[in-house]
Design a protein around this nucleic acid. Structure first.
Length: 550
RNA sequence: GCGCCCGUAGCUCAAUCGGAUAGAGCAACAGCCUUCUAAGCUGUAGGUUAGUGGUUCGAUUCCACUCGGGCGUACCA
C-alpha cells in the first residue's frame, strides 16, 4: 500500500465531509520529526480561499478524518494550520517483507505501462571523439532512460546523426591533408579543419593500408567514409565504457531519401509559413512567442540549414507514435530547439508529448586550471581521458549528481581521489559493507537465509536507527516517481545518500551478526538485505556499479 | 544592445508546483577502531539565500529593478 495515497484519500474525504470545496492536496515530508511523517497545508489553502481562520479549518477537518489507528498513530495541528500525520512504526516494519519479496524490482511502478518513450541523446556527428563536456548529456540521458523504464515506459534509446554536409566534407579534407603531410610535410592544412591528433591517427592508418596509392585521388569520399567509420568506433567505444547502448542510430540522410524534407518544405509553402527572399527560403517566426526574427531553412545554395531536417526528424518521431519524446541538449541549443519545435507546431503537430531537457555547461577544474568544452575552445579533454582519469562510475555519478540546470563545476582532482572525499564512494561503501556483513553471516549464521519473510518477528525491531532506516527505504518508490516526472535523476542520488547515511549510523550502533542472539540477528540481516536491494536498484537507475568489496 | 539560464556556508551543491528553526559533502576544529570494512560514526564552527523593493499568514522559491556569471543572438551544427 502506498502511504501517500492513503493519507491523501482520508484527508480529501475529511475535507469533503467538512463541507469545504476540494483543494489540490499537497504533502510535504517535514524536515523535523516533531512535525510528523507527512504534513499537509490543505487547511491553509482552504482558509485563504474562504477568508477564514486556518486553524479553525484544520480543526474541522481533523475532526472528520477517519483513519486506521494501525497506520496513523496521531494527527496534530501545528503552526499556522498545518495538519501533521504521524505514521505508526508498524507500517514501516510491515513494509520490510514487501521489499524483500520485490528485490530488484522494488521501486518499479507500472503507471506508464503500455506506453512508449523515445529518448534521443548524444547525437554527436562522427567528426571526432566525444569530449568531456558531452559527458553531462550522456550521463543524464542514461539515467533518465532508466528512470522512465522504472515507471513502466518501453524506452527506445536513439542517436541522431548526420554523415553528410559541411562538417563531414571538412573531416574528409582534414584527413586528406594529414595523409598528404606524410609525403609533403608542408602540405597546407585547411583553415577550418579539425586540428585534433585523432585526424593524424586516421591518416596514418590509411597510409599503413594504402601506402601512397591515394596521393593523386580527387575524390574525397574514401577519406570521408574512413574517417566516419573511425570516429564512430571511437564514439561507440566511449559510450560502451559507460554502459550505454542505443537501439536506433537514425541517419539524417534517410529524411532526404524518403522525401520527408521535401514534404515539409511543400507544407510550409502551401500554408504560407515560409517565403523566399534573397534566394533563400525563410521560416516565418512568431514574434509574439519571443522569437526575434525569421529563420532560414533552405540556403540560397539549395542546401537546407540544420533546422529543416531537425523539424522533419521530430515529425518523424511523432509519426512513429511514441507517447513521450524526450530530447536532451546543452544550453547552447536553448534557442534552436525552440525554433525547431515552433516549426513542428506550426504545421499542426501536437508537440505536447515532446519534452526537452536542457542542461547547463560544465566547467572542468584541474588544480588551478579551469576550462570549458566549448566549440571554440582549443583545449581538448576527451571523454575517454576523463574516464581514464576518474573511472566510469565517478564519471557517471558526478554528471548526474547535480540538477541539470546548474552551472556545474566539475572538480577532476576530487573525482579522481579514491578516498572518503569522493562522494561516489560513500554510497558504494554502504553497499560493500552490507555485502561484507552478509558474507560474515554466510559463515556464522547461514540459517538466516531460511527466514520466512512473511513471518518476521517485527517485535524485535525496536531501535530508533532501525525504524528510521525502514522509514527511508519505504520512500524509494515515491522518490523514483517524483524524479521521473521531473526528469531529475539527481534526486535519486540525494535519496540514496540519505539511505547510506542512515545505514552507516545503524551499522555503527547495532551489531548485526550476533550468534548469541540468533533471532535478532536474522531480523537485522533481513533489514540489511532490504537496504542492499534499495541501494542496488538506485545504483542501477543512476548507472553506477554496486561493488561487493572495496 | 536583445533573448534565455544561473547566483544559497570558505569550496561543490540540496531544499518535493510558496511552508515551520535553509540542509549535505569537502575543507577547519574536537572525539570514536581487542567486536560484521574507520572509504565509517559522533560533536563544534560556518548563512542578511548577490542587492533593493513588492505580493501574503508565510518567499531561496513568485513579480520588478540593480549588480555579477554563463549560453545564444549565422544562408555553422
Amino acid at each position: 500500500m502506498d502511504i501517500g495515497n492513503y493519507i491523501e484519500n482520508i484527508l480529501s474525504k475529511a475535507i469533503e465531509s467538512s463541507g469545504f470545496s476540494p483543494v489540490r492536496i499537497q504533502f510535504d515530508i517535514p524536515k523535523e520529526e516533531k512535525f510528523g511523517d507527512m504534513s499537509s497545508n490543505a487547511a491553509l489553502l482552504i482558509a485563504k480561499a474562504n477568508r477564514i481562520q486556518p486553524r479553525k479549518v484544520a480543526e474541522e477537518i481533523v475532526n472528520n478524518i477517519k483513519s486506521d489507528p494501525g497506520i496513523v498513530n496521531k494527527i496534530e495541528i501545528a503552526g499556522p494550520g498545518f495538519i501533521n500525520f504521524f505514521i505508526a512504526d508498524n507500517f514501516y516494519k510491515e513494509n520490510l517483507s514487501g521489499i524483500l519479496k520485490q528485490k530488484s524490482s522494488y521501486g518499479k511502478s507500472d503507471i506508464n505501462k503500455d506506453k512508449t518513450a523515445n529518448l534521443e541523446w548524444v547525437s554527436a556527428n562522427p567528426t571526432g571523439p566525444l569530449h568531456a563536456g558531452h559527458g553531462r548529456q550522456i550521463a543524464l540521458g542514461k539515467a533518465i532512460a532508466n528512470l522512465l523504464e522504472w515507471t513502466g515506459y518501453k524506452v527506445t534509446r536513439e542517436y541522431y546523426y548526420n554523415d553528410a554536409g559541411n562538417q563531414m566534407n571538412n573531416l574528409a579534407k582534414s584527413v586528406y591533408a594529414r595523409y598528404m603531410e606524410i609525403f609533403k610535410p608542408d602540405f597546407p592544412f585547411p583553415e577550418d579543419g579539425y586540428a585534433g591528433d585523432y585526424i593524424k591517427e586516421i591518416a596514418r592508418k590509411i597510409f599503413e593500408e594504402k601506402g601512397d596509392s591515394l596521393v593523386s585521388i580527387s575524390d574525397m569520399e574514401f577519406f570521408k567514409n574512413y574517417g566516419e567509420e573511425f570516429n564512430f568506433a571511437l564514439i561507440k567505444n566511449s559510450l560502451n565504457r559507460l554502459g550505454i547502448h542505443h537501439d536506433v542510430f537514425f541517419n539524417e540522410t534517410s529524411l532526404y531519401k524518403n522525401s520527408d524534407i521535401d514534404r515539409v518544405i511543400e507544407d510550409y509553402k502551401n500554408n504560407g509559413l515560409a517565403y523566399e527572399s534573397e534566394g533563400a527560403l525563410w521560416l516565418r517566426m512568431n514574434k509574439d512567442k519571443n522569437f526575434q526574427k525569421d529563420k532560414v531553412i533552405v540556403k540560397s545554395s539549395g542546401e537546407p540549414t540544420y533546422r529543416l531536417p531537425d523539424i522533419a526528424y521530430h515529425i518523424n518521431k511523432i509519426n512513429r507514435g511514441f507517447d513521450l519524446i524526450v530530447d536532451i541538449f546543452g544550453s547552447d541549443h536553448r534557442d534552436t530547439y525552440r525554433e525547431v519545435l515552433y516549426g513542428v507546431e506550426s504545421l499542426g503537430y501536437d508537440i505536447d508529448k515532446i519534452r526537452v531537457i536542457i542542461h547547463q555547461m560544465v566547467t572542468f577544474k584541474m588544480g588551478d586550471e579551469s576550462f570549458k568544452m566549448s566549440k571554440r575552445s582549443d583545449k581538448t579533454y576527451s571523454l575517454d581521458d576523463l574516464i581514464d582519469d576518474i573511472g566510469p562510475d565517478a564519471t557517471q555519478f558526478f554528471f548526474v549528481m547535480r540538477g541539470a540546470n546548474t552551472h556545474l563545476d566539475f572538480d577532476v582532482e576530487l573525482a579522481k581521489e579514491q578516498s572518503e572525499k569522493n562522494p561516489v564512494y560513500y554510497l558504494q561503501y554502504a553497499h560493500a559493507r552490507i555485502c561484507g556483513i552478509l558474507r560474515n553471516a554466510d559463515e556464522h549464521l547461514p540459517e538466516y537465509k531460511n527466514s520466512d519473510i512473511d513471518k518476521i518477528n517485527l517485535e524485535l525491531i525496536s531501535t530508533e536507527d532501525e525504524i528510521k532506516l525502514l522509514k527511508v527505504l519505504s520512500k524509494f518508490p515515491a522518490e523514483i516517481l517524483s524524479s521521473s516526472v521531473s526528469y531529475e535523476p539527481h534526486k535519486i542520488i540525494t535519496f540514496l545518500n540519505a539511505v547510506a547515511e542512515q545505514f552507516h549510523r545503524f551499522y555503527h550502533n547495532n551489531r548485526v551478526v550476533d550468534t548469541g542472539n540468533i533471532e535478532l540477528s536474522k531480523v537485522r540481516l533481513l533489514i540489511c538485505l532490504a537496504v542492499k536491494y534499495v541501494l542496488k536498484n538506485g545504483f542501477d537507475i543512476i548507472g553506477i556499479s554496486a561493488p561487493e568489496k572495496m
